[in-house]
Structure formats: structure tokens, C-alpha cells
Design a protein around this nucleic acid. Structure first.
Length: 546
RNA sequence: GCCCCCGUAGCUCAGUCGGACAGAGCAGCUGCCUUCUAAGCAGACGGUCGCAGGUUCGAGUCCUGCCGGGGGCGCCA
């Protein structure tokens, strides 16, 4: 089922032993929340390699003190220690702390190396589900800004996580290539071409003037707007490709309108009695489905609203194309749209549990607010050329998407050489460097089965393996919680472990015995696997040299 | 007014579906380059976890209220 089964799973070993011990003591495991025995890695090493709080959790229901129950459990376990366990001790209010023999790390490392980059920390827990991930979807009325890059990096990393956990993912950009904003863009283009100022509410950035100078089409706002939007969309596409974001589908809103899908969707809603006419417009009775007010679907001028198009689009996702699950990643500035969308999706008879909407918080710049219409924003393009694609991606994946980010460009530029991305990439470059030296000195890496990994007893070495064993949980948690930044947190720690090892433990050297060199070469390969997997999930390159 | 997100070290953020003296990085201070890249390593410094209650054996983590910051509440998208 999962590659976890192909690895030593100490949590399962200890949990199993605890469950058995509880049974021996006559404590039914159904007293436990969810029937699960919690086994975790303590924050402090002095509390053992692993620990469990079972005694604390069930003591009351079991009718004895947590301390006493813990001691009884420790006695039972000590009589027949689980595999790799050196000792079990009771600590604090009733924690059970497990001290382990280093062999658990040696066995784990061997498992990781056997699985390799493709199978370690990879899962198939999707049950064959297909998920559609829509993100960015910024209007093609101007260059995309830093916030779009942040949310885009988030969504793309989430897509990679889902794929590593077995989902089939389709990445889509919903292109707003029709409607009032496009006509406004066209008006702005025509105004510039005619040597006039853009309309007050129009688009005024330099890019509009540039586009206007090369526009040789008719004096028609829709034609001009459509033409300009296509040009702008090309630029958006190449900007996103620079940070390794590629869409499977650029879904045109105009195509939905032309296909009649919006009409069909409104008819469909009408059949369910959720549509009414008022003040010359067509409304969705969305208040009945959790929205704060009813919403207009067709304006009194006959044009469908954004919501109507979006509902038709979602109907297409769920019903026409049959995705099992849809994840929309929006910026906080579109938050007001969520309740309407959820209401509309339910109105179409789609289980709202199949639609997830993730809201990325605003990215503000120390120098001021961004506005596309005023033209005074920092484009994603300029940030990328400023600090590079890798720093852009990693910086955007440093923290939770629920947290509003403040970007101090001056600081980012200054620290660009001290950026976490370099710290992590440097670890990879050092690994490649070790391999180059190995090759130069004519040292062959021995076959893994001939290598004695038990020679790895230095604290730096053990620390690395401990860290590596966490990756499967990190990937699963990051995927389930929709929190790619957890991978960032982990990879920074792994890089830290490696730099410490690199400093204290030479892999190749006159003082290093041949067998130890071999064991360390494989340990380094383990780090390479860990870095490669995690940087791959984040969309950050792993360079061979820096 | 109503809804959503956030408030942890000077700065940027972690903190494992509540757990055992609050952790990194950056900035600042002190050491470490004859061997695989010092874009590194080690040490010291630095926090009433916004405030007040509540639940719990145990709360940065959950609940309520308040304070503060951001976003939203269009026949814009």
C-alpha cells in the first residue's frame, strides 16, 4: 500500500508493544481516543528516542494513577523489550521514554537507501482520485505581482505533494479573457494609442503604453482588449515558467460563455428553484446555502457575472470532466467570493466536501501597497530577476499561507547571499563536491550490501539518520494539512545536520578508515536523497556546485 | 456592523491533530580555515508566547471576551 511498509517503522513497533502490554494489564485499548496509542519523538533527547503518553491518557478511565500505570507498563515491556529498544523508563507525570539501540538508525538508513529517491517518502493513499488544482487565475490585464507568485508557489508545491502521495493532479489557470475588465483594458490601449490618458478607472502602467504602440488592430475596445490580454497572458506564462510553474490547462472564460455552458448552468439552477428575476437582473438564492446575501448571475445589461462564469466552470470541473476533488487557491482579495462559490456549488447538487478553497494571505511590500490598476506594484518578474527563481520559490514557501507576509525588498536583496535557499543548496553542492573528490581519487562506492553501516556511531551521523527517518511523516503531514512549508522547515534542518557532519566528519581522508569512508559515502547518499526529494517538492533546484 | 486570517526573541518565522525547562535563521557579540567549497561549524546573548478568564493531570496549542494588524462584505473580477 505505502512504502512505509517497506521501512522499519519504530512508531508501529513501539505502539504495537504498548498495545500488547496494555492488554496484559487488562486495560482495554478502546479507552484510547480513536483506539490509537500515541508514540512520538520527544523534544529533548534526554527523554529518549521515542516516548508515549498512553499512561496519562488512559489512567483516569483505567482507574489508577498515571505514574503507577506507567510503571506497570514499563515493567511488562522491560521483561521482553521490543526490537531495537534498549530500555524503557517512566518520567515526569507518567511518560514512557524509550531509549533505543543505534541499530534502529542503521536499519532505517539501509531501508532508505534501498528505496531510493523515487520510492522513499512516496505514497499511494489517493485511492485513484483525480484532483483539479486551480490557482493564480489572475486577470490578464497586467503583469502578475509578488502575491501571485507566493500563492502560485504554494499551489504548485501542494500539487507536487499530492502527486508524491499518489494523486493525479491537473493544474489549471482560469483565464479571465472576457467581460468588463477586458473592455477597460481595451479602452486604455486605445486611449494610449490615440495619445490620450487612460480612463480614470483604466489601466495606466507603462506596459499599457508599450502594448498600445504595437497595436495595429481596429478601434474596438473588445478587439483591443482581447488582443492585449493575449499578449499579457504570454508574459504571465513565461514568468511562471521561470519559477518552474507549468499549467496543464489555460481555461478560457470566453470559451465558457461561447459554449452556452453559463446558460445551461443557470437553467440547471433554475430547475432547482434557486434563481429569480429582480430589478432586471437574474439572481441566485445563495442565502439559502450559507451566503450572506443573494448574488447576481446575469446583470441587467445581459452580461453574465463573474460568479455565473465561475459556477459554469466548476460545473465543468465536477460534472463534465468528473474530477473527484477540486482545490482552488485564491488570494485573500478574493475571499469575498468563497461563500458565493460554495453556495453555488451546493446549489448544483455537488457535495461541498469535494471543493476545497485555500486562501493565501496578502503579500505586502515594505514600500507600499500594490495595485494593478494604478500600475505601481512590484511584479513577480522583477522579483525573480532580482533574487533569482530559487530564492523566490523558497522564500514564498517559508511559512504558512495563513500568515500575511511582509516582504522587505531591500532586506531580501541584502541578504540574498545569506538566504536560507543558499544554506540548503550549499549542502547539496558539498555532497556533489565529495563525490567529485571520490571520483578523482579513484575510490569506488562499494555495493550497499557489502557496507557496514553500523560504523556510523558519531553523533553527527546518527543525527542525520534520525532526521531522514522523519521525511515520510513530513510529506504525509504536509500533504494532508495542505502545508508545503513543513517541507521547507524540514529540509533546512536536514541541511543543518549535514553541515555539522561535514564539518566534524571527513568522508575521504588519510585518517579515515576505508570501511568508514564507505559507510559515510552511503550516509551522504542518504542525505542527497532527502535533499533531492524535498527540494523537488518545493520546486527549488539542487545545484552540483555554487 | 458582519465574516475570514494573524499577533511567539530587535527582524523573518518554526513549534509534530494539548504534553515533559518555549526553537531556528538573520542582525549584534566571541572563538574556529595545512585535509571533501568558511555561502560553513561551535559558543554566549536575547521572549510576561497581544491581554484577561475558562476547559484539562498538563494550554503557545482548545473555548469565550477584549485589544491590535491585514483582507473581504459590487449588477468588479
Amino acid at each position: 500500500m505505502t512504502n512505509k511498509d517497506a521501512m522499519l517503522d519504530m512508531r508501529a513497533v513501539i505502539a504495537g508493544a504498548l498495545r500488547q502490554a496494555l492488554a496484559n494489564l487488562g486495560v482495554p485499548t478502546d479507552l484510547l481516543p480513536g483506539g490509537l496509542v500515541q508514540v512520538q519523538r520527544p523534544a529533548l533527547r534526554s527523554h529518549g528516542e521515542w516516548s508515549s503518553n498512553v499512561a496519562l491518557v488512559v489512567s483516569k478511565a483505567a482507574g489508577r494513577s498515571s505514574r503507577d500505570l506507567a510503571q506497570e507498563l514499563a515493567d511488562v515491556l522491560s521483561a521482553r523489550l521490543p526490537r531495537h529498544v534498549r530500555s524503557v523508563e517512566v518520567a515526569g507525570p507518567g511518560f514512557l521514554n524509550f531509549d533505543l539501540h543505534e541499530s534502529w538508525l542503521h536499519e532505517s538508513l539501509r531501508d532508505i537507501l534501498d528505496l531510493g529517491e523515487d520510492r522513499f517518502a512516496a505514497f499511494d493513499i489517493a485511492n485513484g482520485e483525480r484532483v483539479q488544482l486551480e490557482f493564480i487565475s489572475a486577470n490578464p490585464t497586467g503583469p502578475i505581482h509578488v502575491g501571485n507568485g507566493w500563492w502560485g508557489s504554494y499551489a504548485d508545491a501542494l500539487a507536487r505533494l499530492l502527486e508524491r502521495c499518489g494523486w493525479s493532479v491537473t493544474r489549471e489557470y482560469y483565464v479571465n479573457d472576457t467581460g468588463g475588465q477586458i473592455r477597460l483594458l481595451g479602452q486604455s490601449i486605445l486611449a494610449f494609442r490615440g495619445g490620450h490618458r487612460a480612463p480614470d478607472e483604466g489601466y495606466k502602467g507603462d506596459y499599457v503604453a508599450d502594448l498600445a504602440s504595437s497595436y495595429d488592430g481596429p478601434d474596438d475596445v473588445t478587439a483591443a482588449g482581447t488582443w492585449a490580454a493575449a499578449k499579457i497572458l504570454d508574459n504571465i506564462r513565461s514568468t511562471l515558467e521561470a519559477i518552474d510553474i507549468h499549467f496543464d490547462e489555460w481555461y478560457s472564460q470566453a470559451s465558457i460563455e461561447e459554449s452556452g455552458a453559463i446558460r445551461d448552468t443557470i437553467d440547471h439552477l433554475g430547475e432547482r428553484g434557486l434563481v429569480y428575476e429582480s430589478e432586471g437582473a437574474t439572481w441566485l438564492r445563495s442565502t439559502e446555502l450559507g451566503d450572506s446575501r443573494d448574488r447576481v448571475l446575469v446583470k441587467s445589461d445581459g452580461d453574465p457575472t463573474y460568479l455565473a462564469g465561475d459556477l459554469a466552470y466548476h460545473r465543468d470541473k465536477f460534472i463534465v470532466r468528473g474530477f473527484d476533488r477540486v482545490i482552488d487557491v485564491f488570494g485573500a482579495d478574493h475571499h469575498g467570493h468563497v461563500a458565493s462559490l460554495l453556495a453555488g456549488v451546493q446549489a448544483m447538487g455537488i457535495d461541498k466536501g469535494r471543493l476545497e478553497v485555500k486562501i493565501g494571505q496578502m503579500v505586502s511590500l515594505a514600500e507600499g501597497k500594490m495595485s494593478k490598476r494604478a500600475g505601481n506594484f512590484v511584479s513577480l518578474d522583477s522579483l525573480i530577476s532580482d533574487i533569482g527563481p530559487d530564492a523566490t520559490r523558497l522564500l514564498s514557501l517559508m511559512g504558512s499561507m495563513d500568515q500575511a507576509a511582509t516582504l522587505d525588498l531591500e532586506l531580501v536583496r541584502q541578504q540574498s547571499m545569506e538566504n536560507p535557499v543558499y544554506y540548503v543548496q550549499y549542502a547539496y553542492a558539498r555532497i556533489s563536491s565529495i563525490d567529485r573528490v571520490r571520483a578523482e581519487r579513484g575510490i569506488e562506492r562499494a555495493v550497499l550490501s557489502d557496507v557496514d553501516l553500523a560504523l556510523l556511531m558519531h553523533e553527527r551521523e546518527l543525527e542525520i539518520v534520525r532526521r531522514l527517518t522523519e521525511l515520510p511523516d513530513v510529506v504525509l503531514d504536509a500533504c494532508r494539512e495542505r502545508a508545503p512549508y513543513r517541507v521547507t522547515t524540514w529540509v533546512r534542518k536536514l541541511a543543518g545536520c549535514f553541515h555539522g557532519f561535514y564539518h566534524d566528519c571527513y568522508v575521504i581522508g588519510d585518517d579515515v578508515p576505508e570501511e568508514l569512508t564507505q559507510a559515510r559515502l552511503w550516509l551522504v547518499e542518504g542525505v542527497r536523497i532527502g535533499l533531492s526529494i524535498s527540494l523537488g517538492l518545493l520546486g527549488v533546484r539542487a545545484p552540483d556546485s555554487m
